[in-house]
Simulated scan of single mutants.
Amino acid sequence: MKIVYVFDAYCGWSHGFSPTLRDVISRHPELDVEVVSGGLFTGSRRVPIRAFGYVQGANAKIADLTGAEFGEAYDRLIADGSFVMDSKAAARGVAALRRVAPARAAEPATALQRAFYVDGLSLSDPAAYRKVAEESGLDADAVVAAFEAPEAAEAAEADFRRAAGLGVTGFPTLLAADGDGYSPLAHGSATTAEVEQRLSSLGAR
């Protein structure tokens, strides 16, 4: 059995789910973890954030329900409404971190969300990946080089296809993979206890 986490680095609900994900992974070191970028803001949805009038209200709801932090630097970044969330760039960054630290894919992915939602860094900016790499004890030059390499764009597109192939339509989605089957563990929001109960019903210890 392994865990498949389908998320988007620009998704506020994924940011709110990060503590649960970290808790579950820490409780189950025996389970492999696959992290897949879902591609929330691509194509016609790659527009200035002012086009999504619900963002601040949604963030307040996420913070209330999950305790997620939305920092002052993030508020400043989006204040004039011109910032564009580009999920392909974010997915390239996830792929770069995954390439440099394949055994730690979930940890840097959640750190990326903090870089955006707390530190107010654009996930199109190599500086965001340098910061996350340094704070995660990774080779920052290698991560930035991987982010800028053509292979990162290919990996991002592969992630989007993988998410679609899994039938995921919303983020975050946490799945348990056992053989060729997938069982839902969480969608949108869930506590560690809820995920643990679902894992236990599938035979995980």
Rank of each mutant, 00 (worst) to 15 (best):
K2R: 15
Y5A: 14
F7K: 00
D8M: 12
C11E: 07
C11S: 15
G16M: 08
F17H: 09
F17A: 13
L21Y: 03
S26M: 09
S26P: 00
R27E: 11
R27C: 00
H28V: 03
P29A: 06
V33S: 07
S37E: 14
G39W: 01
T42F: 04
A51P: 02
F52E: 14
Y54M: 11
V55I: 15
Q56R: 14
G57S: 14
A60G: 10
I62T: 07
A63K: 12
A63Y: 07
G67W: 07
G67R: 13
E72Y: 01
Y74M: 02
R76H: 05
L77V: 07
L77K: 06
S82L: 11
V84G: 09
S87R: 03
V94I: 15
R99S: 15
V100E: 09
V100M: 03
A106M: 11
A109H: 09
A111D: 08
Q113H: 08
Q113P: 08
Q113F: 05
R114L: 02
R114K: 14
F116A: 03
L121Q: 05
L121T: 00
L121S: 05
L123C: 11
P126S: 10
A128I: 04
Y129V: 02
R130G: 11
D139Q: 05
D141I: 04
A145C: 10
E151G: 15
A152L: 03
E157F: 05
A158C: 09
A158Q: 12
G165M: 13
G167C: 08
T169I: 12
G170L: 06
D178N: 13
H187V: 14
E194W: 13
A204K: 02
A204Y: 05
R205I: 09
R205Q: 12
